[in-house]
């Protein structure tokens, strides 16, 4: 059931091909790519290379946009988000490691729209698992996992990348 470290590179290669096919299908020529801190950025770095994207890679730390701030408070080690391009009218490929509840993606979408009005946003994730709490789905999925509600999957990296399944109490 768990993805072993060995075939993550193959999974990312397949994601790159799927993304390329989708971009062609939608006639998108110069997309920009944004990774979600931390795991999403690791995967985005590889996809960014494979797809030969011209603009530098952007990264988002969505901590300021989380919906549970009033419960857990602020972690001061938030990295500044960096979008080294204007996102107005751009086609954005958003990358994350795991799609679970959908809340991280909701926060990322909100943050992106505070930078401007993109032409479109596409979502690619390494792992998709059940447990969605919002109507959010990925356009490109590396692999699917079936996990219990007390199990968490975590991407360890950046070199080498591996997936770890943790039991939450």
């Amino acid at each position: 059931m768990a993805e072993s470290a060995g075939n993550i590179p193959d999974t990312i290669e397949q994601m790159a091909q799927d993304l390329a096919a989708q971009l062609e299908e939608q006639s998108i020529e110069n997309p920009v790519m944004v990774g979600i801190h931390t795991g999403g950025v690791w995967i985005a770095e590889q996809l960014h290379n494979k797809l030969n994207i011209m603009e530098p890679l952007g990264n988002l730390d969505i901590s300021f946009y989380r919906d549970d701030f009033t419960r857990i408070g602020m972690n001061p080690q938030v990295r500044p988000s960096k979008l080294p391009f204007s996102i107005d009218n751009q086609h954005i490929i958003l990358i994350d490691d795991v799609l679970h509840t959908g809340r991280t993606i909701r926060a990322a979408l909100n943050e992106l729209f505070d930078y401007g009005r993109p032409a479109s946003i596409m979502l690619a994730v390494l792992v998709e698992r059940g447990g969605r709490e919002l109507p959010i789905e990925a356009n490109v999925v590396g692999c699917r996992m079936t996990l219990g509600s007390n199990e968490q999957v975590k991407l360890i990296g950046p070199d080498p990348l591996s997936l770890e399944i943790q039991q939450s109490p």
Partner: peptide, 20 residues
Amino acid sequence: LDAAESFAGVTEQTVKKVPL
């Protein structure tokens, strides 16, 4: 000081605001 470093980036956004 670290948190301030992150918030300094907010002013680069078109919408200079976070929903915290």
